[in-house]
């Protein structure tokens, strides 16, 4: 589904990605992990074409994607921070994104699920951070895309919404979709992910399942495994 070859990205003097290569097969949930500043978001943004790498290639569904835009029709993206134009209503924003993507989509089910019905005609500037994140989720999941990229999807969500989001992610997986997720919530990773990509200092440190990681680090839970990696004991 995605193939990344030898990706290099430097911001000024800071080398964020230093020869990253990996491959993701269709279907399943892949968690992209790593400490702060390890390049998680940069990888996702490079896939989306928001960041231009200095070197490397990216293939999506077999086609090179750098400097193209049509391929994004098949990708849904949930950005880390949910901020929208203050003076548009939720409904207008939904219409706008539908209008831009120019495909059929039905948001009603999602709106009901996240209890946004009453907020539909409110201006986005008047919504709380949590509600905005819900809107953000609706915008991402209402389209039928084979690949979903979720950057810290749980930020600002209350426990109820969090559970609903997990369910939603599972359902999408059942439909055979591929999901790339970054998060700091390890329980979420343990619950959901089929595969982990662990980034350290701009390189892929580990790619495999949760179990393999635990085995390699000789720990029984994920948090400890990661702590161990970060302490440099492996």
């Amino acid at each position: 589904m995605i193939e990344i070859k030898n990706l290099h990205k430097r911001f000024g003097k800071l080398q964020v990605l230093d020869g990253v290569s990996f491959q993701v097969e269709p279907g399943g949930i892949i968690a992209v992990l790593g400490p702060n500043g390890s390049g998680k978001t940069t990888i996702l943004k490079t896939i989306l074409g928001m960041v231009h790498p200095q070197m490397g290639e990216i293939y999506f569904q077999g086609n090179a994607v750098l400097d193209k835009w049509e391929y994004r029709n098949d990708i849904g993206y949930l950005p880390q921070i949910a901020r929208f134009p203050d003076n548009l209503t939720v409904q207008e924003l939904i219409n706008m994104i539908k209008n831009i993507r120019d495909v059929e989509a039905d948001e009603t089910e999602l709106v009901n699920r996240f209890d946004l019905k009453l907020s539909l005609n409110k201006k986005l500037g008047n919504l709380s951070g949590g509600t905005r994140q819900k809107v953000n989720i609706v915008l991402t999941f209402m389209f039928d895309c084979p690949l979903l990229i979720l950057d810290e999807p749980t930020a600002g969500l209350d426990p109820v919404a969090l559970i609903q989001l997990k369910e939603l992610i599972q359902e999408e997986k059942q439909k055979g979709k591929t999901l790339l997720i970054t998060t700091h919530i390890m329980s979420l990773v343990e619950d959901l992910s089929d595969q982990i990509i662990f980034l350290l200092e701009g390189k892929i440190y580990f790619q495999g399942s949760v179990e393999e990681l635990q085995e390699q680090t000789q720990q029984t839970d994920l948090e400890h495994s990661i702590a161990k990696i970060l302490q440099g004991d492996v």
């Binding site: 989306l48 994004r72 994104i97 953000n136």
Partner: peptide, 17 residues
């Protein structure tokens, strides 16, 4: 400056920069 995050959302949409 205030629309930065929203611009990112738009950048991820299938539309020319």
């Amino acid at each position: 400056y205030s629309a930065r995050e929203f611009t990112e959302l738009l950048l991820a949409q299938p539309i020319k920069r």
